Simulated assay, not measured.
Amino acid sequence: MPAEAPPCPAAATRTDWSALADRVLAGERPTDEEARSVLDCPDDELLSLIDAAYRVRREHFGKRVQLYFLMNAKSGLCPEDCSYCSQSKVSDAEIPKYNLLSRDKLLSGAKMAVERGASTYCIVISARGPNEREIRAVEEIVPQIKAEHNLKVCACLGLLTDEQAQRLAAAGVDRVNHNLNTSAEHYAEVCTTHTHADRVRTLESVRDAGMEMCSGGIVGMGEKPTDVVAMAQQLRDLGVHSIPVNFLIPIEGAVIGKPVDLDPRYCLKVLAMFRLVNPDRELRIAGGRELHLRSLQALGLYLANSIFVGDYLTTAGQAPQSDYDMIEDLGFEPVLREEVGVC
């Protein structure tokens, strides 16, 4: 079992989770101490915490679940040294390596997104940032994807300049994903070839270009609970629209390649904290939910309102039918493409 994080002073006093939810619903922002107390929630109060955070989720999103489909459009071959990533230059993981997929393959991915009920198609490449050929390929394919499939498009292309962000916006990209991944304080422990500030600047370029910002992080990289809180608060400060929360999937050959024993109850507390800190933001349970939430996956949707349906970048997700069954068993329903308002 993993060593438990030392309790913070706020954990010594029992928190009234319902009262905290009331304050969040009234527009108050949880303090760092309150957010940390969520991560320190005793296991015998977990259902009370979930009930309180679900009230916030229900107020803003009802019982709807947004479905996303992810396409690994360029795999491996990345010059960055992100220690958590199987595609980085310092990884020995045995993964597929290929340059940008053809137009036909990207269109086939969009068709698969529709078949799986997703309303957003995520095009992801492994790179420090896109080269000119990759930017042009995205500019050309996005209008066709939207015209043929009525999908929102989220692009994840690495670090962007202001000019690149403006070009993506002009092409019709709705949203750009660029994860902060962890706190500014912890970032140098997981990557040295670019900085946390570089990532923030990309998000600012996305925002200034008029696109929605998608940014979240990875839990389980040796960070402290205070790092998780700092990341959640910074995402709120930046005004991020969509927040994917990943739980590290250990991949043999990656620098952080040893199994990470994340307690599924702690994972739920992380999701509850993100919901309370970012009450009206789309919160997505992303990579690692099958591995770390295990039999408690369904409880995660009382906190988050979005999931990927299908596989992740270099790892497999559970069968789509299992996702549909989970949503139905909860009495929830997926958001239809027609309801998303594709622009």
Rank of each mutant, 00 (worst) to 15 (best):
M273E: 02
L238S: 08
A73V: 10
I327C: 06
M211Y: 05
M1R: 11
D208K: 15
Y121E: 07
E33S: 11
L107P: 04
S75E: 03
A19S: 06
E212H: 08
P2E: 14
R57I: 03
D227K: 12
E33D: 13
Q144N: 00
E148P: 07
G172M: 07
A35R: 01
A254H: 08
I141L: 13
R175F: 13
E212N: 08
E282T: 10
D227M: 12
P96W: 01
S183K: 06
A319G: 02
P9C: 00
I327F: 06
S37N: 12
Y266K: 06
N179M: 11
A272P: 12
T15E: 05
Q144L: 14
T15G: 00
S322F: 12
G300H: 04
P9M: 00
I218K: 08
A170C: 02
I243H: 05
G76F: 06
P279D: 03
R281S: 11
R23G: 02
L235Y: 03
E290M: 09
A319F: 11
R265C: 14
H149F: 15
N72G: 05
L39R: 10
L100I: 15
M326S: 01
E148S: 14
G222M: 13
T195D: 07
G310H: 05
V219G: 09
G317D: 10
D81N: 15
M1N: 11
H60P: 03
C8V: 09
H149G: 01
P244T: 10
P2V: 14
V173L: 10
L67C: 01
I285D: 02
P7H: 03
T182N: 09
N246F: 05
P130M: 09
T182H: 08
L293K: 00
A188D: 14
S126Q: 01
E28H: 12
C191D: 01
P259V: 03
N305A: 09
H149V: 03
G62L: 09
R128G: 12
V229K: 11
V340L: 13
Q87Y: 06
I95W: 11
S37M: 02
A232R: 10
A165H: 07
E204T: 11
D227Q: 11
Y187A: 11
L299K: 12
R103T: 12
K269M: 05
L336M: 11
R284A: 04
